[in-house]
Amino acid sequence: MIRALCLMTCLAGPAFAQDIEVTPLPGAEDLFSGETDSEQLQEDWDNGIMTPLGPDASSDPDETRERVVRGSAAVLRILDKLTGDVHDMTLAVGEGGSVGRLEVELSECRYPEQNPSGNAYAFLTIHEDGDQNADFSGWMIAQAPALNALEHPRYDVWVMRCNT
């Protein structure tokens, strides 16, 4: 009896899914319109201003922006998921290093001007030995490591802080 009920439910599932009508939330079309203010983004980039993530991001953007300063190096933490070993690696901007089978290159590291130990934003390029395709290329944020993380079966990499 239970098998028959499960079989009927599993087979009938796609038919029911076609009958569901999805109605958008009022005002939601403005949230993801794809429009960006490229001039403002470029100006923020040039001036070293970044918009923080989190609950404060919904308030007035001019009040939540913080001035960031470029660091000369970054401290990264690398976890080998197979052995449980944790390595801290310090890389200077423009420098590369390797741990295990990973090669890591730091292009830039930024931190808040008013609070150097508060957060770090690092642009990293990560790939395996001998592989030209990057496994990761982008900004990692110390306060939100899962936001833009390396997806690798063996290693995890986090930005800890920038050094001056």
Rank of each mutant, 00 (worst) to 15 (best):
P26K: 04
E128D: 14
A92V: 02
A92I: 00
M89Y: 08
M160W: 00
A149T: 05
A120E: 02
G48E: 09
A134T: 05
R161W: 01
K81P: 00
L102M: 08
S117P: 01
D156M: 10
F123C: 03
D156L: 13
I78E: 04
E113T: 04
S117H: 03
E63M: 08
L124I: 08
T164F: 15
N133G: 05
V75S: 03
E66Q: 02
R110Q: 11
E21P: 01
P61M: 11
P26A: 01
L31Q: 07
Q132T: 14
I141L: 12
R110T: 06
K81E: 06
T36Y: 14
R3G: 07
T83R: 02
P24R: 14
P55I: 07
D46F: 12
E103D: 13
S59R: 15
D135H: 09
R77V: 01
P145R: 15
T64N: 14
S33Y: 12
D56N: 08
D129E: 13
E29Y: 10
P116L: 05
S137D: 05
L11R: 12
L5R: 10
D135I: 01
C10A: 15
G96I: 01
C10P: 01
P52E: 12
V99S: 07
F123L: 11
Q18I: 14
L150Q: 03
L7A: 15
